[in-house]
Write a protein that binds this DNA or RNA. Structure first.
Length: 390
RNA sequence: GGGUAGGUACCCAAGUGGCCAACGGGGGCAGACUGUAAAUCUGCUGACUUAUGUCUACAGUGGUUCGAAUCCACUCCUGCCCA
């Protein structure tokens, strides 16, 4: 095991808050593996790069010999974490949550070492908790404390509703810490409040309070909002290589340094041309979650398709014509069969009339036209999608 | 429980009997430009194989009317004030 200062040096990298370094140093100094908690609510099937920021930090702990406790919030997912939310989360069914939990854990092991990770479901203690216990837990927290939170305060001020179950969330997350006896809890910077509640509850139970460590939030592809499935601005860990590459190429330049740091753990070379830097970022990310070979392939594909604008020699999915021969019908059919993406006739028509649909580079702007659909021709559907006629 | 203001498309929001598939803004999509970035300009943004066409939609149900997002009744939901 490394010395305390050496461990601290590594662990402090890229974090937002550490409460407190002194406590962490004391815990580390005992020389025993610490229990490091991270809770994730399986509210969607896929883990994305935003989640990976926390997971990567866990991985560092793991490599330093500590014990990871990954809490799958099967129960808390039903409540919905109000952190950073301006509205109540839509409820999920338990079946959905369980299905998500399955893919979540699998994907988490793309980053974590499976053998050194303890996975627990918080439903295993909350489901059986008697109401009396719930009331007792609630007695430990004041309304004023809850209302201190930005999220709730803003909603109250704006006249948007705050449901009482949402107020329970931090208490539940805090209780998780008591149950798993965590020494350190990790979370995004929006988790600060929840993690601190865990400290309070642990203290009340006569335990040594957990150290609170928060990490920066990763903005999504839009460059503004936190990466999340529901906003559709995410890069999934299991996204196909080309999708992953393409999505990363579309992030705003301003975000690149942050992505380098949080996704790759590297420092962006400011002297590099932004486009080159972005290509490297995308390639490295593909290499991490897929393979070096896939990364090279993506990069080459990108260069022919977009940098050289040479769609003709790019590798494109094959499309076989259906019944219809008119542009409108073909476009809808191609979306459906090749990309499993249903678009309405109106959408297709808008794309056609907007000039997005191109056959070998020629705009097809008449929905009713029936051009010669030659085998091998390239049909461009929108910015990201093109097919080759079979 | 009482009073009061409300519920319009992804979000905010205008519309208070026909000219309403519904102003405007945001977001999104597409085109030009370009580095699938940013900025800028333009178009589009309910569905139906575009149709001076049909259907669905202004919380829900029913009603008045030739005609309703708009008027009436009841129901559900939310904010605010009072208890």
């Amino acid at each position: 095991m490394l010395s305390v200062p050496e461990q601290l040096e590594i662990l402090k990298r890229g974090i937002v808050t550490l409460h407190s370094e002194k406590e962490l140093a004391e815990k580390l100094a005992r020389g025993k593996p610490l229990r490091i908690k991270l809770g994730v609510d399986p509210t969607s099937p896929d883990i994305h790069l935003g989640h990976a920021v926390g997971l990567r930090k866990l991985r560092q702990f793991q490599e330093l010999g500590h014990q990871i406790v990954l809490i799958i919030g099967d129960f808390t997912a039903m409540i919905g974490d109000p952190s950073g939310r301006s509205t109540t989360r839509p409820p999920l069914t338990y079946e959905e949550v369980l299905a998500n939990a399955k893919t979540y854990t699998e994907q988490a092991f793309l980053v974590l070492d499976r053998d050194k990770t303890e996975v627990v479901f918080n439903g295993s203690w909350f489901k059986e908790m008697p109401f009396m216990e719930v009331i007792k837990l609630n007695a430990r927290v004041t309304l004023q404390q809850m209302l201190q939170r930005e999220d709730f305060k803003n909603r109250v001020n704006n006249g948007t509703e705050v449901r009482l179950h949402e107020i329970q969330y931090p208490i539940m997350q805090g209780w998780d810490s008591v149950v798993v006896r965590s020494d350190v809890e990790i979370g995004g910077s929006d988790q600060l409040f929840n993690i601190l509640v865990g400290r309070d509850l642990q203290k009340e139970e006569g335990m040594e309070p957990q150290v609170c460590m928060t990490l920066p939030l990763l903005e999504g592809l839009d460059g503004v909002k936190k990466m999340s499935k529901s906003l559709g601005n995410y890069v999934g860990l299991t996204d196909a290589p080309k999708d992953m590459f393409g999505k990363l190429m579309s992030i705003p330049d301003e975000l690149m340094a942050k992505y380098y740091l949080l996704v790759l753990g590297e420092v962006l070379d400011a002297a590099m041309h932004p486009m080159e830097a972005k290509k490297q970022l995308a390639a490295k990310c593909v290499a991490t979650y897929h393979s070096e070979a896939a990364a090279r392939e993506c990069r080459e594909d990108w260069d022919t398709r977009f940098s050289k604008r040479d769609l003709a020699s790019a590798e494109l999915p094959a499309y076989t014509l259906g019944e219809r021969r008119d542009v409108l019908g073909v476009v809808q059919h191609a979306y459906q069969t090749v990309f499993e993406h249903t678009i309405s006739g109106g959408d297709a028509r808008r794309l056609i009339q907007g000039g997005s649909i191109q056959l070998n580079g020629e705009k097809l702007s008449d929905p009713k036209a029936e051009p010669a659909w030659e085998s091998g021709a390239v049909l461009k559907l929108d910015k990201k999608r093109s097919v080759r006629l079979a």
